[in-house]
C-alpha cells in the first residue's frame, strides 16, 4: 500500500472497534502515505467512517494503536491533533451565520488565511459575507472544506464529502482536493463511488479485503 521510500503519515496497527457487540473494525492494520490521496473503500457498514474518526480521535479504538507521524494519537493533545488533521463530514455541517462566521469557528484570520482557504476550496472569496442558508449543497461542502483549511492542516479526512452534491459540484471538490494533495497535504478519502475512486486516488485501501 505505502510506496517504497515514503514515510506513512498515518498508521493503524491491529485496530478493533466494537459497537453494540458488533466488530465494526476487526483487527485492521494499514498505513496512509504522506502527501497522497488514499481512498478508503468498502460497502456500507464496513467501518469506513469509524476508521476516519479514529485518526482525529473523535472516537477511540477498543484495542490497537492509531499513529500520526509515528506517535500514538492517544498521547497527543486531541485539540492540536484535530487542527493538524482536518475532517470534512458526509453531510455539510455549516454553522448558522455567514461564511466568515464559519471560518472564524476554526481560527482567527491572519494575513489573508480566509481568502487563501476559500480559494483552495475553489470558492470565490467574495462569498465570505454570504449567509450559509443561501448556499447550494456543493458550496456548503466547500465552505466546510475551507473552514477546515483555515487551521492549515497537514492531513485531511474526507468522509464521502460529495455524496450529497451533484456531479459538477463533486468534480470541483475533487480538483480542489487534488491541488491540496499536490501541495503536500495527506488525504484519506472515504468513498463508495468506484468512478470517483479511480479519478482521485493515488492509493486504495479496501476494508472489504481485510482478513
Amino acid at each position: 500500500m505505502t510506496p517504497v521510500g515514503s514515510e506513512p503519515a498515518i498508521q493503524l496497527d491491529d485496530v478493533v472497534v466494537i459497537r453494540d457487540g458488533r466488530h465494526v473494525l476487526d483487527h485492521v492494520s494499514t498505513s496512509f502515505a504522506d502527501g497522497r490521496i488514499t481512498a478508503v473503500a468498502g460497502p456500507s457498514g464496513s467501518g469506513k467512517t469509524t476508521l476516519l474518526r479514529l485518526i482525529n480521535r473523535l472516537s477511540v479504538p477498543d484495542s490497537g494503536v492509531v499513529r500520526y507521524r509515528g506517535t500514538d494519537v492517544a498521547e497527543l493533545d486531541p485539540l492540536a491533533l484535530r487542527r493538524q488533521v482536518g475532517m470534512v463530514f458526509q453531510r455539510p455541517t455549516a454553522f448558522p451565520g455567514t461564511v466568515r462566521d464559519n471560518l472564524a469557528a476554526a481560527a482567527a484570520d491572519r494575513d489573508g488565511t480566509y481568502t487563501a482557504a476559500l480559494k483552495q476550496a475553489a470558492l470565490d472569496p467574495e462569498i465570505i459575507d454570504r449567509d450559509t442558508a443561501q448556499l447550494s449543497g456543493g458550496e456548503l461542502q466547500r465552505v466546510c472544506l475551507a473552514r477546515t483549511l483555515v487551521t492549515e492542516p497537514e492531513a485531511l479526512l474526507l468522509d464521502e464529502p460529495t455524496s450529497n452534491v451533484d456531479d459538477d459540484a463533486a468534480e470541483v471538490f475533487e480538483s480542489a482536493a487534488r491541488s491540496l494533495a499536490d501541495g503536500g497535504t495527506t488525504i484519506v478519502w472515504v468513498t463508495h463511488n468506484r468512478a470517483q475512486l479511480e479519478r482521485v486516488a493515488d492509493d486504495v485501501f479496501d476494508l472489504r479485503r481485510q482478513p
Binding site: 482525529n56 473523535l58 485539540l79 492540536a80 484535530r82 487542527r83 482536518g86 475532517m87 463530514f89 453531510r91 455541517t93 454553522f95 469557528a105 476554526a106 466546510c144 473552514r147 477546515t148 487551521t151
Partner: peptide, 13 residues
C-alpha cells in the same frame, strides 16, 4: 450532534 462534532473536529475544546 453533527455540528458539535464538526466544531470538535476543528480543534475546538
Amino acid at each position: 450532534r453533527d455540528e458539535v462534532e464538526a466544531r470538535l473536529a476543528l480543534g475546538q475544546d
